[in-house]
Amino acid sequence: MNENFAIKVNGLDHFFSSDDSRKMEVLRNVSFTVKPGEFSAILGPSGCGKSTLLRILAGMIKPAGGRIDFADNNKGFKNNELAMIFQSFAIFPWLNVYENVEFGLKMKNTPAVERAKKVEEHVKEIGLVGFEKTYPKDLSGGMKQRVGIARALAVEPRLLFMDEPFSSLDAFTANELRQDVLKIWLQDKITILMVTHLVDEAVEMADTVLVMTPRPGQVEAVVPIDLPRPRNRRSKEFFSLVDKIMDIVKI
């Protein structure tokens, strides 16, 4: 009975209706399983519906068809179990760093004392100490995404969605944040689902890469990445996996 999965997606279909009421097929028969504690990457070209897929799983969009099951909770992951990190950071400009990190906890009605403890813990963990009173307009892109990450981790989610989390950052900052996220994932065992269009990023971070086709998005292949961690981006094995995935994407 107790199958070992965190999310199970079965035959998901979705359409966008454009202004002239023509239906555009976005996702076709998408099926996959994410195991608990696993780091999965959804990899695909722009417009393949991968962000839409993430939003469907997050409950923001109702899919046209198909079935989504979440472990132990068929109603889906609600506010106390799911968190998300956004490409555009999506941190609230009217709140300072501390208040941004606190946002999810406030919504969960976490008692004030516990809230303060958790905010401090995650502010420290992600390297934002000294910036608690700073407003987003005075932060660099990398620091903004740190706030986005701390806000997500503060609610102690069982499931973490990341929508191209490092795509708006310069290469140096992106790499730094990737290592931070990997470190936290290894120690906290959160189930992570990351959407990305970068093959190296997927191979470096994920246990499993779901390769998607261009529109309508379908799962083309599921590639397990069994390289030992920490992964060496310059090793022969790394390059051969990147090549293997590149070949699938080209089809």
Binding site: A58, G59, M60, N79, A83, A90, F92, K108
Partner: peptide, 10 residues
């Protein structure tokens, strides 16, 4: 995206 973040965080 702010609307989405508000939704996600409950």
């Amino acid at each position: 995206d702010l609307e989405e973040a508000a939704f996600i965080f409950g």
